[in-house]
């Protein structure tokens, strides 16, 4: 069997309803952008799961590396003062 060149991979994001973010739902192969949208409609929204679809070529996504997750996210780790619970406010102060 001859191995054919594959259609490029697209990552698919669906907005479930107005007011919500697009959320990643999976991926699929398509020859071009328009086909990616049509396939996404058939594969990921057969039961009214969405009102809007984004299809993004997987090779265009820039991602952080899992190997670097410690140094990348470390700066947030020791900044407890960024959280509201860091500040002691008397219980009887209303609306805080």
């Amino acid at each position: 069997m001859t191995v054919q060149p594959e259609w490029p991979l697209y990552e698919i994001f669906v907005r479930g309803k107005r007011g919500l973010n697009h959320v990643h739902v999976g991926s699929l192969h398509a020859a071009d952008d328009e086909m990616a949208l049509r396939h996404a409609r058939d594969v990921y929204t057969r039961r009214n799961e969405g009102v809007s679809i984004w299809a993004v070529r997987a090779d265009l996504i820039v991602a952080s590396s899992p190997d670097e997750k410690d140094p990348l996210f470390a700066p947030a780790g020791d900044k407890v003062y960024r959280h509201p619970t860091f500040y002691a406010i008397p219980d009887d102060v209303p609306h805080m």
Binding site: Q4, P5, W7, A31, D32, E34, M35
Partner: peptide, 13 residues
């Protein structure tokens, strides 16, 4: 079909 779709995509829209 797979080949034709790739060829069409390669030509641009």
């Amino acid at each position: 079909v797979r080949e034709a779709a790739l060829a069409f995509a390669a030509k641009g829209t």
